[in-house]
């Protein structure tokens, strides 16, 4: 048996390669699921938004018709000032407030899709790193000289450093909202 066969280094290299390959496969599935989640969310929110605006338009038209009808009708004085008529008019304000809250709530999609996109980007970056490490691991399996090993480890360190940098244009803290209350406003 040669000294090369006794060394655990080739086995460690193979283990690293297998680990990286396995990890990158898992990350591919995570990315695929996240993409599908984002796709479904986009579809759902687009449809909900369309139906919501259509309902709001229909209710607004219904209220306008009601007001017109009320103006044209000759109603007894006691009915004009009745609680029912007043309640119907108050309903306009209630609907307005509910529409307002719904518009705030529907914005969850914008916030969550940013988070999903960022998670996909990070997963993608990590997968690229694992694939790079896998290639290095294959090199380690075949490397016999200490100098060659040092060079490969140095390259792995560089890949790790490169991958640790934030993806371009991404801020770590851009979505910090914990609830869907409206955000602050500042005029300069």
């Amino acid at each position: 048996m040669t000294r090369q066969n006794d060394s655990p280094v080739p086995e460690l290299g193979r283990l690293l390669s297998a680990l990286c390959e396995n990890g990158s496969q898992h990350l591919s599935r995570v990315e695929s699921d996240l993409m599908q989640t984002m796709f479904l969310l986009n579809e759902a929110i687009e449809k909900i938004g369309q139906h919501f605006t259509a309902i709001h338009q229909a209710v607004s038209e219904q209220q306008a018709e009601f007001e017109l009808l009320l103006a044209q009708m000759v109603l007894p004085a006691q009915l004009k000032d009745s609680e029912q008529i007043s309640a119907l008019r108050d309903l306009r304000e209630v609907i307005g407030d509910e529409v307002n809250s719904a518009v705030v709530g529907l914005q969850f999609h914008d916030l969550t899709s940013q988070l999903i996109s960022r998670t996909i980007n990070r997963s993608n970056g990590l997968r690229d790193l694992l694939l790079t490490f896998k290639a290095h691991g294959d090199g380690i399996s075949a490397a016999h000289e200490a100098e060659e090993m040092v060079r490969l480890l140095g390259e792995m360190g560089e890949s790790l450093k490169h991958c640790s940098a934030d993806p371009a244009g991404e801020s770590c803290h851009s979505v910090q909202q914990r609830h869907l209350g409206c955000g602050e406003i500042e005029l300069f």
Binding site: N100, H173, Q177, I185, L187, F188
Partner: peptide, 26 residues
């Protein structure tokens, strides 16, 4: 969605007249 003072200062320096943090109230 950005709400940091640093980003607001950059926005102001770039020429923005105001900063609204999402979600917005109609």
């Amino acid at each position: 969605t950005e709400s940091s003072d640093e980003m607001k200062a950059r926005g102001k320096a770039a020429g923005a007249n105001g900063w609204l943090v999402k979600p917005f109230d109609p």
